[in-house]
Nucleic acid binder design. Structure first.
Length: 314
DNA sequence: CGTATTTGACCTGCGC
DNA sequence: GCGCAGGTCAAATACG
């Protein structure tokens, strides 16, 4: 996957949640018990589903949880080495294949569930769970709003800069030191009014050349047109097509981006992403050339990579 | 001067 | 109950 291809995917991943199907997928997933682990059949979707079920595990698996930041594992390092060798080839991580060489690893999507919030967010990372009796929430978040399910999508990107440009405008509202990591975690909020999308950005402790970006929520507005000289104009018109015209699931897009050659016809039919990616679609290609490369997406990893590769106890 | 960032304080959840 | 850690607020500061 080339840099500009990653830019494409990056944008779509963050905007994909407009799609109701995706929302449904998360809803179903988050309602499943944490212990549920679909093993009878392993489709890409299943992997995502099970990943949603175990957000906490995923966070740990990717070092998002400071208590287990060490788990940024050897296969990932191997991937990084691959990318360091300027290899732009992509190898999809499927349930039947372990990672051997790739610049892309996995993706996870999750959403906060009211009933599962405790399990999914052992560290209380849910923004909505806060209710300050002293200070009124600036965002005027009400209780019902806090219960809103917030889909998440996170991935690891090989990048020299922490905050990756994705076409949206973000305002930094916090920064915290991460335990067992020399790198801080930054908190960003979409600056568009009434848009509650947030994202966290932190540099991987295990591999400082990569940054971990976690999106939370879905944009309720189109791409800002004023960003960086009308960034939206750089995107093809199909970007703003109705949700039904877009890929139904982020993983479908991801799959195509990751390994189009491995897609069968059925998969290809289900993915409209192909029409969305013009060959020259790289809004920030010039800016991020040789700086950004996606090396990992959360979610698939848990099911697709043997646990022994994901965790190594100190 | 308006907007974005910085940063210490504060809140919440969790484990002990 | 206490301490810790993650997440957020908001005043101060920086920046254009």
């Amino acid at each position: 996957m080339s840099e500009h291809e990653f830019r494409d995917f990056y944008y779509h991943a963050s905007t994909m949640f407009h799609n109701d199907h995706v929302d449904d997928m998360f809803r179903v997933s988050s309602s499943v018990s944490v212990d549920h682990h679909p093993s009878s059949y392993m489709s890409f979707t299943d992997c995502l589903h099970s990943s949603v079920d175990e957000y906490g595990s995923l966070e740990k698996a990717f070092g998002l949880s400071p208590s287990s930041s060490e788990v940024f594992s050897s296969p990932i390092e191997g991937l990084n080495q691959t990318t360091n060798q300027q290899s732009s080839e992509v190898m999809a991580i499927t349930p039947n294949s372990s990672i051997s060489s790739s610049s892309t690893e996995a993706a996870y999507c999750e959403e906060d569930s009211e009933k599962n919030n405790k399990d999914n967010q052992p560290k209380g990372s849910d923004d909505g769970s806060k209710e300050s009796p002293k200070k009124g929430m600036k965002g005027a978040k009400k209780k019902d709003e806090r219960k809103q399910k917030e889909p998440r999508f996170a991935f690891v990107t090989k990048s020299e800069v922490d905050h990756l440009e994705d076409g949206y405008r973000w305002r930094k509202y916090g920064q915290k030191a991460v335990k067992n990591s020399p790198y801080p975690r930054s908190y960003y909020r979409c600056t568009t009014q009434k848009c509650t999308v947030k994202k966290r950005v932190e540099r991987s402790f295990q591999d400082p050349s990569t940054v971990i970006t976690t999106y939370e929520g879905q944009h309720n507005h189109p791409l800002p047109t004023t960003l960086r000289g009308n960034a939206a104009a750089l995107f093809p018109p199909s970007m703003f097509a109705p949700a039904t015209a877009r890929p139904s699931f982020p993983h479908e897009l991801f799959m195509q981006m990751a390994a189009p050659h491995q897609m069968n016809n059925q998969q290809a039919n289900g993915v409209a992403a192909a029409s969305m990616f013009g060959e020259n679609f790289s809004p920030y290609h010039h800016q991020y050339h040789h700086h950004h490369r996606q090396v990992s997406d959360y979610g698939l990893l848990q099911d697709m990579v043997p646990s022994r590769f994901l965790k190594h106890e100190p």
